[in-house]
């Protein structure tokens, strides 16, 4: 039984269809990359997988006892106020909130987990700093640490490197790959097709034609070849 399986899924918003009849599945330990043009519905799909939006049709099945509290999420944009008073530690700890329903206070285990994740992201020295005063790259790593606190089995990332400079981007990708190697299932939306084919085990291409398969299958498919040519050709011309 796959960890997550979408069957005949139809998505949209404001009564407009974006995608119809989508089928794919994610097994434990996979690294699925979702690629496609702007407006093809990648973020909508992710929000539907998380239960934030209801699909127009089809269903999403979960296996291996996957529950909401096992899922971590790094959103693309956090609509945060400029001067929100929150220390890094408080933000990372808040990732543990989904875990327990009735306990009011964080226990030692949660604080230990938060510190461990901050260390993995290399931000443990910033634990008492104010979030809104840090750089984009640092903020992204903090939010990733928070997502890790929430993710026990599955991690969903929406454009985790948007707005980051190349060096930080590379570090971020390495970090995500290491997490996957440690056994965490990853679903990542990315605009960067090169990174996608480099790190992912499976690719889901969304657009006029949808494709789902392993990375090798994608590289051989027409959709894949066309998309890669467009993207790489575009880069060569730029």
């Amino acid at each position: 039984m796959a960890l997550l399986e979408a069957s005949d899924l139809s998505l949209g918003y404001d009564s407009r269809y974006i995608v119809k009849g989508l089928d794919f599945s994610v097994n434990s330990g996979d690294f699925l990359c979702i690629v496609g043009e702007n407006g093809s519905g990648k973020t909508t799909l992710m929000k539907t997988l998380l239960g934030l939006i209801k699909p127009f049709g089809g269903q999403i099945l979960t296996g291996d006892g996957l529950k909401k509290k096992d899922i971590g999420y790094l959103p693309q944009h956090t609509a945060l106020q400029k001067d929100f008073p929150a220390s890094v530690r408080e933000i990372v700890l808040s990732g543990c909130q989904g875990r327990f329903a009735f306990r009011p206070f964080y226990g030692k285990a949660e604080k230990q987990l938060a510190f461990e994740n901050m260390r993995r992201m290399g931000i443990e020295e910033l634990k008492d700093s104010c979030y809104s005063k840090l750089s984009g790259g640092q903020q992204q790593r903090i939010l990733l640490a928070r997502a890790l606190c929430a993710a026990e089995k599955l991690l969903l990332l929406d454009e985790p490197v948007s707005g980051l400079d190349p060096k930080v981007t590379a570090q971020m990708y390495e970090l995500i790959r290491d997490l996957n190697k440690e056994g965490l299932t990853i679903i990542m939306i990315s605009h960067d097709i090169n990174a996608a084919v480099r790190y992912a085990s499976h690719i889901l291409h969304m657009g006029v034609t949808c494709f789902f398969g392993t990375r090798e299958e994608y590289l051989k498919s027409d959709t894949g070849k066309l998309f890669l040519m467009l993207k790489r050709g575009g880069e060569a011309c730029a």
Binding site: S94, G98, A150
Partner: peptide, 24 residues
């Protein structure tokens, strides 16, 4: 307020994330 403090902080800071990760 004291009992639900952590929940309130999580929901105030990022409601979407809280909802996605299983907070009611």
């Amino acid at each position: 307020f004291i009992l639900f403090y952590n929940r309130i902080v999580a929901v105030t800071f990022d409601e979407t994330f809280a909802k996605a990760t299983g907070v009611n």
